[in-house]
Structure formats: structure tokens, C-alpha cells
Amino acid sequence: MASLLVSPAEQDYITRGVEKGIRCDGRSNLDRRQVTLRTDMISQANGSARCRTGDLGLGTDVLVGIKAEVNTWQPGEPEDQGSIVCSVECSPSAAQEFEGRGAEDLNVELTQLLDRILNGPQSGIDLQKLCIIPKQAYWGSIVDTLMWATRAALLSTKLPRVVVETISDENGDTQAEFDVVDDPEDVAPLEGADNLPITVTFNQIGKRYVLDASEQEEAITQAKITVAVSPKREICAVQKGGILQTAQRVSQEELKRFGRAVRGGQGRGGTGRCRGKHRLDIPQPVLIS
């Protein structure tokens, strides 16, 4: 994806560093960069969040807005539930390769991933139509950041109360009508948002996997796997990517080893709620082997 050039000597340096567990910025393979999360950034939206992965105010930056819309039911749609419509856009001011139609592939890929995670039975949200427009401003570890921001935005989403009235007409048939209460105070949080999954992406470099790859590491990544995990430790979605297809066997072993390391060393993942400006505890990956 990234058009970043890396020389063979640099590639060798990074790969051997990852093998030894010392990455170019001193992190070990399982260390993340700083994650900053802010909710309620957009006043016009029902819910919003901005998440940044990276040190010193640089790095991947995702802004998510949630907009609730009342939709008329169309034949063929499930009768008792709404859906979440996702749209991911990469800002052309973020990187040169996003100029023009450059970001289209990435937009589609991320949109579909988000769509699959949110609209499956595992996300547990059955409400009205929601629209999500994230925007990103840099490179490296984008999927995880996107998912955190989306999760936080949905958690911060407050929907107006809806009053349903049953009226019987002259023929004696009953008809349901509803009113959306126009009071900004009279709102309720989105039900089931607590159960939203987060994603953990592993990038394979050499024979090892790293978490939260930097821009350079992403450029030399041979394969990557994204796992979406819910707070109940259920795997909700898995996405594989990259050029090295034969990496599957290695990935299984490595994932198991990481699962052990994470469970042994760090325990449960912290995916707490956020209000206002918070520095989120570095979300620990929750892994199930």
C-alpha cells in the first residue's frame, strides 16, 4: 500500500531488529506507541471521537462522526433492525499518495472491513441508520486506530428518544407512528455499544510479528492479520493481507506465542470508556488462541 522506499540495508536492519525484539524506535515487538483518544469532538453529530496513534502528536489520526438518520424500510431488508452505513475517507492532505484517486483502494478496503465488523451479529447493535465518516491524516497502524475511534464514537453516541404511538383509524386497523423528541437533553446511549470489538493487527516481518507497525515497518511487511475481538473475548472478524501467502503456518505459531505472552504478562485488555480528554491506557491486545 505505502509507496515508501526502503533500502535493502535498512530492510535488513529492521528485520534483524524485529527478530531480536529491538525495533528502530526502541520498542519491543509487542509495544505500542502512545494512543490519544478524545470523544465529543463534533457538536453536530450524535457521537464522535478522534483517535491518534503515535508519539509526540504525530502519527495516524482518525476522526469519526456518527449521525443517526431515520430511514424508511425497503422490501428485502431485515424487518426488525436498522443498519450502520460506513464510509471511510483518507484525506488527501495526509499523504501524497492519497492525492486524486490514490486513496480509493484503501477507502474501499477499510470501509468494507468496518462494515463487516459493525453489521455482523457480533456487534449487537440494532438501531437506526448510522453514518460514519472517518478521516485519517497519516500512516502506520491505521486499522486499529480506526476501530478504536469508531468504538469510542459509538460509545459516546447519544440518540434522541423516540415516542411510539399506536393510533387506530376508522377501519379499526392500528397503525404505529413515532415522534423523535427534539430535546438535546432527552437522549439515550447506543445500546450494545459496550460489546463492540476492537481490532489488533499483527505485521509479519521476517519470521516474527510486530504490533503497531511504524510507517517504515509497514512498508516492508510481508503479511498482516487483523483480528477483531469483543470484550467477551470472542473473535468477531479476521482479515488477512499482504503479499506472502505462505505465511499462514508461521502466523498460527506466532499468534499462539503472542497469546501466551499477552495472557501471561498483561492480563485483561483495557478498553475502558472515555469521557472528554483522556489519555487512554495503552489498549492491551486480548488474544484467544
Partner: peptide, 15 residues
């Protein structure tokens, strides 16, 4: 394009 052998301490210092 061949790198020399770089020890863990050297890697830490470079980082």
C-alpha cells in the same frame, strides 16, 4: 547491501 553484525547493545544505542 550487506550489513555488518550488530549486537543488541548497539541496536539499543542506535535506537
Amino acid at each position: 547491501d550487506q550489513n555488518e553484525l550488530i549486537s543488541d547493545e548497539e541496536r539499543e544505542t542506535i535506537a
